[in-house]
Design a protein around this nucleic acid. Structure first.
Lengths: 214, 214
DNA sequence: CCGCAAGTGGAGAGCCTTTTCCGATTACCG
DNA sequence: CGGTAATCGGAAAAGGCTCTCCACTTGCGG
């Protein structure tokens, strides 16, 4: 009989190794959230009480570790979109998606860079991400249909908002949460259909761009 | 007779040294704008065609060079505020200030971090900065008075906008200019008095925060 | 035109990162 | 138990940065 581990991450590891691997992912998530993506590997090693070599034996590069850690962040995001789509009021759903995603960004300093990158190293994420985007597009369509969301809201405006919120989340220190809420408050008001005024053209924002920064 | 140099920056330098100093400031400004504040000193040295030692003889630290370079950026900002205040229509003046500052941010990658820091190392800048802030506060007062700017616009909302725009400017690559314009377009619409809806409380944003990032 | 203080550039010290190496240790199967 | 392959952790290699040191060069007053 083949024993399937609780985590489908890696089978065939010695139990102590598996244990270490799990703890690494755990503390790495905390460290990235707290200190940002540029926390040194040795700091993660210290927190997990292992040597750096152990990190590199499980994850070939730092980038691989990052992507592994944030795989489920993406899932949480996708869930937020699903929730929004499930709301009978598409406008309320739209607002809740944006509010949730922005709150996640504030709570986790490493979140944005990884969220907006396309995870080239993990096939599964690409698919999930694409699905979430389709769902969101559908939500946008319904909200416009209902006359609540302005007609000229562009798909790229979500990215714009995320980039803007990232600026606030990264810079506002203690007050980041409050600042982000206020920014989102302002932007949601200008997204409403009732008060739409002509606007500069939407920018063809490349999602990759956020990645190469930081 | 005492000879006063054209640049009041440093008198008593040998002419070749003064020449080098000027060129360093010149190319450093370009380099910061192009590559951001984290461009290596050796790159600036290369561009100015001097050795790194020459950089450090004129500017004790990299930070000192940065502050020196951005001293006149602050002046440009202050001028933008003055222009806005001079406009007979305070709302139009308010918009122009914000549009100008945001455009500067996009054009110059190093701008924001320095702009929002308090320049602890340069007395003169502190005063000029304080003056600009008073001017802007007055502009805000008038715009509210005229019934164009929403009453609950907070002083910290300018900082919020600058942080948000910084996120866009830093992340949007090629499309940064268009993205920034659109963000500013959205936000200016929600700053208008007519369509004000209740908003989350303004955040007590600490200007210093941007500095310790990056 | 000469002497020397002021100025110079490149090598490298010191520090921080990511990533690799390797001898010591340990889980696990029989 | 005991042998062995998997796993371990710390040391250090490799490469980035800021900033310093020092032997050489040069503008300029007399």
């Amino acid at each position: 009989m083949i024993v399937v581990k609780t985590e489908p991450s890696r089978i065939g590891l010695r139990v102590d190794a598996q244990h270490n691997r799990d703890r690494i992912l755990e503390v790495a998530a905390d460290a990235f959230a707290e200190l940002g993506l540029d926390v040194p590997m040795i700091e993660i090693a210290r927190r997990a009480e292992v040597g750096v070599a152990t990190l590199y034996r499980r994850f070939p590069t730092k980038s691989a570790l990052v992507h592994e850690v944030f795989a489920d962040q993406l899932t949480t995001c996708a869930a937020a979109v699903d929730d929004g789509l499930a709301d009978p009021d598409p406008w309320r759903g739209f607002c809740s998606v944006i509010e949730k995603i922005c709150a996640m960004q504030v709570a986790d300093r490493g979140f944005t860079a990884v969220f907006l990158s396309t995870f080239p190293e993990r096939e599964a994420n690409v698919a999930e991400r694409a699905r979430a985007e389709r769902q969101f597009a559908e939500l946008v369509r319904r909200a416009k249909e209902a006359g609540k969301l302005r007609r000229d809201f562009a798909h790229s405006d979500l990215t714009l908002l995320i980039m803007a919120n990232n600026g606030v989340a990264g810079s506002a220190g203690e007050a980041a949460a409050a600042a982000s809420r206020r920014l989102v408050g302002y932007l949601l008001q200008s997204f409403r259909a009732e008060q739409a005024q002509p606007l500069p053209a939407p920018a063809p924002i490349n999602l990759q761009d956020l990645f190469c920064r930081s």
